[in-house]
């Protein structure tokens, strides 16, 4: 509010007319309507999240009303709490396993592709690039169903379960690092690398010592996105799950949501939220450490890479 007071004198000379008119003509006014929309949107988007978390501390079994405060669904209930329900354990572990494995495969695969496709031109390259972009925009249900079919009919040796899920997820996610890294490559240009090679570095050395460090922000950003997107993935993973033990939390939540919800599932999701935030924070610290001097602006920079 103080800012609007500060900016007021700047423009008071310009417009004539009534208050409303003046407000409309003042380009530096505090945009009340936009601000209301934004904060209203944030409330709308975050209140369900807050309630979902609060319910995990419910003292009752209800999922629609909040009755704080109990750790029943976290660990005190001997059979249905997060700590004591082996199905929820395995779901949480499966979610983390799938997303970490996928991330570990997708990032090198995608970064290498981005590097290659950025410097390799020709028809084949155009084709490969086309397919890569196609995998990015393809609705997930198409991808999930077709991968499920291929494992059911053609590549029958792949059992449904973790293996199939990871193979499907990697396919769905591999385009993220490609797109993010390519954008970064374009803004870097080829000068640094050339300089390195002029100074006698081999191509490999110049990539490892010069190019990769320059790409760290993009690589971290894509790893974070792949992790966050995979941990929440549902469509592909559900079609490709095999035994009950291969159902990650997202699939469990879907089943619970359509059956009897239990606050324990909220506890599991909250636990996941907390662990994602920890992972994101660690990643952010690493990102800062690795990218000293290259960042334009912290989180904003990261966000624009989405």
């Amino acid at each position: 509010m103080s800012e609007s007071v500060l900016t007021a004198p700047k423009t008071s000379a310009l417009p004539r007319g009534g208050f409303v008119r003046r407000r409309l003509r003042n380009p530096w006014r505090r945009p009340t309507i936009l601000a209301t929309i934004t904060w209203g949107y944030l409330a709308w988007s975050l209140i369900p999240l807050v309630i979902a978390i609060a319910v995990s501390f419910n003292a009752s079994r209800s999922s629609s009303t909040v009755h704080l405060f109990s750790l029943q669904w976290w660990w005190t209930d001997p059979s249905d709490s997060l700590l004591h329900d082996p199905e929820l354990h395995s779901a949480v572990i499966q979610s983390l396993r799938l997303s970490l494995t996928t991330m570990a495969i997708v990032v090198p695969l995608g970064v290498a592709f981005a590097l290659g496709i950025d410097r390799w031109h020709g028809r084949l390259a155009t084709g490969a690039n086309f397919v890569m972009l196609l995998s990015f925009v393809m609705p997930e249900i198409i991808l999930g169903v077709s991968v499920f079919f291929v494992f059911s009919f053609l590549l029958k040796f792949v059992p449904l379960g973790s293996t199939a899920q990871i193979l499907g997820l990697v396919t769905f996610q591999v385009s993220y690092p490609v797109i993010i890294v390519r954008a970064r490559l374009l803004s870097i240009g080829k000068e640094y690398e050339e300089a390195a090679m002029d100074l006698g570095a081999t191509p490999r050395q110049s990539i490892r010592a010069v190019l990769l460090p320059l790409l760290y922000p993009a690589i971290f950003a894509s790893a974070a996105i792949v992790f966050a997107d995979t941990i929440d993935d549902f469509v592909t993973v559900r079609y490709l799950s095999g035994p009950v033990s291969s159902e990650p939390l997202s699939v469990k939540i879907y089943n619970f949501a359509r059956g009897q919800p239990s606050p324990a599932i909220n506890a599991a999701a909250t636990f996941m939220l907390a662990s994602t935030i920890v992972v994101a924070f660690v990643a952010y610290l690493l990102y800062r450490a690795f990218t000293k001097g290259q960042r334009t602006g912290g989180l904003g920079d990261l966000a624009t890479r989405l």
């Binding site: 369900p48 319910v55 999922s63 997202s250 919800p261 999701a269 939220l273 994602t276």
Partner: peptide, 14 residues
């Protein structure tokens, strides 16, 4: 950062 389905579940309850 929180599962899409979890948020949908919250909406069901809301």
């Amino acid at each position: 950062f929180i599962s899409y389905l979890m948020r949908m579940l919250a909406w069901i309850n809301l």
